[in-house]
Design a protein around this nucleic acid. Structure first.
Lengths: 189, 189
DNA sequence: TGTACATCAGTGAACGCGCGTTCACTGATGTAC
DNA sequence: TGTACATCAGTGAACGCGCGTTCACTGATGTAC
C-alpha cells in the first residue's frame, strides 16, 4: 500500500487543491474532511498522514487559493499596462462567471467573513494575498506610489464587497446591477 | 412552569436578538443552539416551542440584524441631508468600533460569505435589507434617482468590502489603512 | 546487485464529542361553564 | 366569581448522526549491508 515519495507528495498537493475548492464552495464548516478526501479520491483515514488538523489544511488551502488568484491576475494582466491592465482585472473579477463559480474564484469573496474568524496561520496567508492583490493593482496607477496603493486598497474593497453582495442577493436583476455598477464606477476612476 | 403569552412572546424576542448577536459573533455554524439558548437565559430543550429549526431562527435573526442596522442608519442620519448625512453613515460604518464589534454591527460585514450559502428565507431578508440600505444612501445623492442608486450600490459594496477585509487582516496598520482609505475615497465622491 | 528489514501512505473501522432535534414531564396560565 | 380541565412554556434527559481524530493493519517503497 505504501506509495513512493513522489506519489505521496502528489497526493498531498491534490488534497490541498481539492480542499481549496471545497472550502470556497461549501464554507469551512460545510466542507467535511470525509467528503473532501473522497473528492480527492481517497478514504478519510489517510488524512493525518499528511496534515496535523483540519485547521492546518485550511491554512494550506487558503495559500493555494491565494496562489491561484495571483496566477489568474498575472495571466489577465499579461503584457497590458496601466488602465488597460486594470480594466482587464475588474472585468474578470466582476464577471458573472466569477460570481457563479466561487469554488475556483477569489478567496476573499468566497470566505470573507469566515476568514475574519480563522486562526493566525490562515489570516496571515490571507493578509499576504491581499497585499499582493493591492500591489498588483497599485502598479496600474501612475504617479505617487502611496497614492496608488490607497486607490488600490479602495478598489479591492469595492471588488470584494460587490462580489459578495452579488452572491447574497436573491434577485438576478439586482445581482447583475451590483456587478455592472461597481465595474463602471471602478473603471471610471 | 407555563408562562403567560406576553412572557412567551418576550422570551421569543430575546432568543431572536441573542441569536442575531451570536451568529454575527461566531458565524452561523459556530453558534450552537445550546450556547445560544444559555446566552438567552434558557435551557436548550425549549427551543422548539418557538422555532421549527435552526434555519428558521437564522432567518429571523437576520431580519433582526437588518432592522437594527436600519435603526442605526436612521439615527445616524438624524436630520442631516445630502453629503453630511452620507459622511455620518460612512464614518460610523468604517469606524474602529464597528470593525471590532461584529456582534452588533452590519449583517453583511459579519456574515457576508455565509449569507451567500444561506437558505431562501434568509437571503430574501438580506436582499430586502440591502435594498433599504442602498435606498437610504441614494437619498443622500442629488439629481437623477437612477444615478443616485447606482452610486449608492457602489458605495455599499465598498463599505462592506472594506469592513470585511479590515477584519481579516492580521496587521493593525493595514487594517486601519483599509478603513481610512475607503472612508476618504468614498467621502470624496 | 541482491537480500533482509524498517518505514510509512493509504485503508477501513472505531472513538468520543457536540450538534440539532425529540420527548416525557411539570406546573402556571388560559378557557369553559 | 369560582371551579375543573386543557393548554403549553420551559426543563432536563435522551436520541441519532456526522464530525474530527485515532488506530491496527497491509503491503509497496526505501534503506542498509
Amino acid at each position: 500500500m505504501r506509495k513512493s515519495r513522489q506519489e505521496a507528495a502528489e497526493t498531498r498537493q491534490r488534497i490541498v487543491e481539492t480542499a481549496a475548492e471545497e472550502f470556497r464552495r461549501k464554507g469551512t464548516a460545510g466542507a467535511g474532511l470525509s467528503d473532501l478526501m473522497a473528492a480527492a479520491g481517497l478514504t478519510h483515514g489517510g488524512f493525518y498522514r499528511h496534515f496535523e488538523s483540519k485547521d492546518q489544511l485550511l491554512a494550506e488551502a487558503a495559500a493555494a487559493a491565494i496562489q491561484s488568484l495571483d496566477v489568474k491576475l498575472a495571466d489577465t494582466i499579461g503584457k497590458k499596462k496601466g488602465a488597460r491592465a486594470r480594466k482587464a482585472i475588474v472585468d474578470l473579477y466582476l464577471s458573472r462567471d466569477h460570481r457563479d463559480d466561487p469554488a475556483t474564484g477569489c478567496l476573499f469573496g468566497a470566505l470573507g467573513s469566515e476568514l475574519a474568524r480563522a486562526d493566525d496561520a490562515t489570516r496571515a496567508t490571507a493578509t499576504a494575498g491581499l497585499k499582493n492583490f493591492v500591489s498588483l493593482l497599485a502598479d496600474t496607477f501612475e504617479g505617487d506610489r502611496a497614492e496608488a496603493e490607497r486607490r488600490a486598497i479602495v478598489m479591492v474593497s469595492t471588488l470584494v464587497g460587490a462580489l459578495t453582495l452579488s452572491r447574497i442577493v436573491d434577485s438576478d436583476k439586482l445581482s447583475a446591477a451590483i456587478l455592472t455598477d461597481a465595474e463602471q464606477a471602478v473603471s471610471a476612476r
